[in-house]
Amino acid sequence: MLYLLRKFALLLLTLFVAATINFFLPRLIPGDAVGAMMAKYQGNLSPQAADALRLAYGLGNEGSAFQEYLKYLVKLLHGDFGRSITQFPTPAADVIAAAAPWTIGLIGVCTLISFLIGSALGLYSAWKGNQRFASALPAIGLFLGALPYFWVGSLLVYVFSLWHNVFPLGGNLDPFIGDSFTPKWWSSMLRHAVLPACSIIITAVGGWLVTMRNNAVSVMGEDYLAFARAKGLSERRILSRYVLRNAMLPSLTGFGIALGFVVGGSILVEQVYSYPGLGYYLFSAVTSKDFPLMQAIFLIISAAVLIANFLVDILYTFLDPRVRTGLGA
């Protein structure tokens, strides 16, 4: 319990830090931040959008930076992320609410799948260390992990959409699909998700593979494994209850760190496929210099990653008795 409380405190602290960075980042730009930002639009900014910017960055507000900061935090707590400039006066929160399910669905599911496939391959590589394929796996994993996500996405589009018309070029659904969650909707949704999903899985699998393999190799050098062998246990039991159960623990503690990285890379895939998730809007916010939307998306991605991380921590307490019973870790 103490472990989870500590992890929850870290979650809150990190969210707070993210929010604080978010507040101070635009103000760190040398000189008049908002003025400089407005100058970037070179007069193309509509009066409403200019108002939105002023609102977002507290221009024209009296009061100290600290008071503004407090106001900003209170607004965040009420779910007010400011207003998008390009889609003025839509609140940034509304844009996010429409985009987030697609991102969470796509990246969440793909992260899970790549974690499972990668860990399974990593375990296999460590277990069958002497075989040719098994010993080549880490190098393959390192190569896959070094591929830029968006580049893999581009290649898949080229092969499977442009060259062979197997999967749609982009988007999340066919136009005029009608009601959600009908069989027709599901098939369209899945068809559109295949290529983005493959891009993410192909690149993300490598990291999990290498991590799991290293963990399993170090577990296989432990005394308790030699003891299990000496007891005459079956290979199956040794693999599942001794190697896997122990090797997955560091994989899970590293999950949070890796997750931020994987999500960061994955959101670029959305841009390649014009998949209307957070990454896609983040890109369009960058190109149209919609800073309030950009920052809101950063915050929401942070929150999603941190919550996913916390869920993994909860799972961890079920798998590691040392944490559960409150003694050292």
């Binding site: 730009i29 890379g265 800073f291 950063f298």
Partner: peptide
């Protein structure tokens, strides 16, 4: 250690995008 842990779990790339977009002229 607290600072390290916070920075570790913050998703770096989205933060990078926002910061780099803001600092574009730098």
């Amino acid at each position: 250690n607290g600072i390290i842990n916070v920075v570790l779990v913050l998703p770096g790339f989205p933060l990078l995008i926002v910061a780099a977009a803001l600092l574009e002229n730098a």
